[in-house]
Design a protein around this nucleic acid. Structure first.
Length: 429
RNA sequence: GGUGGGAUGGCUGAGUGGACGAAAGCGGCGGUCUUGAAAACCGUUGUGGCGCAAGUCACCGUGGGUUCGAAUCCUACUCCCACCGCCA
């Protein structure tokens, strides 16, 4: 979340950000509540100071075996008054916090202004789009012909847009996961973690999925016998991994921390039906290898660049064509200050598909999850900066692989880096 | 699922109604000594809010409650540990 003090002192700037992001939050109400809260607080605390003083006097009187009943009777009324005012202050503060949680992050200054994805800035392209002397088939046809994905039966057991990987398709998923994790742990200095695939409400709030995007999440473990249970299937490993240090104060020499994790990701994709959903493009459960960094504020933007490179390396090793775009204001996700997308080229349908979102959240998530570090011994703790990037999401990489490396006879070549993970296999089919 | 024991500052751990934001030890930082280091000794060392400031308030797992006053008493919950049962 954004620092309340910052909002108080830069209200107009925040208002502009809300407009640029085409989002709404109860900013005026927030400012109003904040004023009320501070007035109430100051007054209440003056009363409390008095109460504390008199309590000392009562203790003194009792020690001297004197009668304090008169003073105590007076204090009874004050005590009640304080209780009511404190309750009011707490209510105001929790209303303030509720609004604060709905205010998106402030974009970093290089973020271009824009009103649609067309306003994203193309930063670079890599590789050459393949030319071909036969008609390219879309990935779902290739996959069904090779019998490596079963769309029908996936939908049968879980619903539409759930898929079944089968045979070499399932093995390809496993190979990609292994390849990506090995790359990040051995070449890029990440520590592999395997977190829970479900997360509780504070965890989901820490990274920014809640409270605004609850309808996009799968909720589990909630039924009549267990009404208070509050677990969600994770939409990305970012959620459990970033929250690993929630509430902790890290030492500066632990930073930066690099973690990588494979997890499945679960997304309702509410409202996305009918839009780019064919085949593997938008499915409710998909595999992803994620990278998460915890850094000092001074280094986070340099770390953001190297994080992007780490993700790019995956696609380069696989020989896939891609481009990098920087999100414009309206495309920037709720929690991000700056974000690059990596989009892989799917040649059959001639379009780019997002396979990685590479974001610097600055202190936005750290403030929500209370993740701090001590810049030096004895110094005050400060919020860390958190960053993450997919490294990468699998199904769309599979799309690109199938469409890029397809042969005229329907078989699909495997890039050299994957062959060891596929038992030496050079092609599928 | 059952029974019992816990949760206190960076860590260990004392504290069962007022002198406690909290003993002691470890660790950290500064110093004395030393060519330097270690040891020893001395000092220092939690977090957050409001306030221009002086200052003040809150925080001993979390939420309620009792009381003039709660780390301490009551209550509900969460998590951790141990043992039993069940189970991949």
């Amino acid at each position: 979340m954004v620092d309340l003090k910052f909002i108080r002192e830069n209200t107009d700037a925040v208002r502009k950000v809300l407009a640029d992001r085409q989002t709404d939050a109860a900013l005026d109400e927030l400012i109003d509540l904040d004023t009320q809260w501070r007035e109430n607080l100051t007054h209440t605390q003056t009363l409390q100071a008095h109460q504390n003083q008199v309590s000392q006097q009562i203790a003194q009187l009792k020690k001297e075996k004197q009668d304090a009943s008169e003073t105590i009777a007076e204090m009874r009324k004050l005590s009640q008054d304080i209780k009511e005012r404190t309750a009011e202050a707490n209510k105001l503060k929790s209303d303030i916090d509720a609004i604060l949680l709905t205010i998106p992050n402030m974009p970093e200054e290089s973020t271009p202004y824009g009103t649609s994805e067309d306003d994203n800035t193309e930063i670079k392209t890599w590789g050459e789009k393949p030319s071909c002397d036969f008609d390219l088939k879309p990935h779902w046809e290739i996959a069904e012909q090779l019998d490596i994905v079963d769309f029908q039966r996936g939908a049968k057991v879980a619903g539409s847009n759930f898929v079944l990987f089968k045979g070499l398709g399932a093995k390809l998923e496993r190979a990609l996961i292994q390849f990506m994790l090995d790359l990040h742990t051995t070449e890029h200095g990440y520590t592999e973690v395997s977190p829970p695939f479900v997360a509780n409400r504070p965890t989901m709030t820490g990274t920014g999925q809640l409270p605004k995007f609850e309808s996009d999440m799968y909720r589990c473990d909630r039924h009549e016998e267990n009404p208070d249970s509050d677990l969600f299937l994770i939409p990305t490993a970012e959620v459990p991994v970033t929250n690993l240090f929630a509430g902790e104060i890290l030492s500066v020499d632990e930073l930066p921390i690099y973690y990588t994790a494979y997890t499945p990701c679960f997304r309702r994709e509410a409202g996305a039906y009918g839009k780019d959903t064919r085949g593997l493009q938008r499915i409710h459960q998909f595999d992803k290898v994620e990278m998460v960094k915890f850094t000092t504020p001074e280094t986070s933007y340099a770390e953001h660049e190297s994080l992007l490179k780490n993700a790019e390396t995956v696609l380069q090793a696989l020989g896939l064509v891609y481009r990098v775009v920087q999100h414009c204001t309206v495309e920037l996700s709720f929690a991000a200050a700056k974000c690059y997308d990596i989009e892989v080229w799917a040649p059959a349908r001639e379009r780019y598909l997002e396979v990685s979102s590479c974001s610097n959240f600055e202190a936005f998530q750290a403030r929500r999850a209370n993740i701090r570090y001590r810049p030096e011994a004895g110094a005050k703790p400060e919020f860390v900066h958190t960053l993450n990037a997919s490294g990468t999401a699998l199904p769309r990489v599979v799309i690109a692989l199938l469409e890029t490396y397809q042969n005229a006879d329907g078989t699909v070549r495997l890039p050299a880096v994957l062959q060891p993970y596929m038992g030496g296999l050079k092609q599928i089919g």
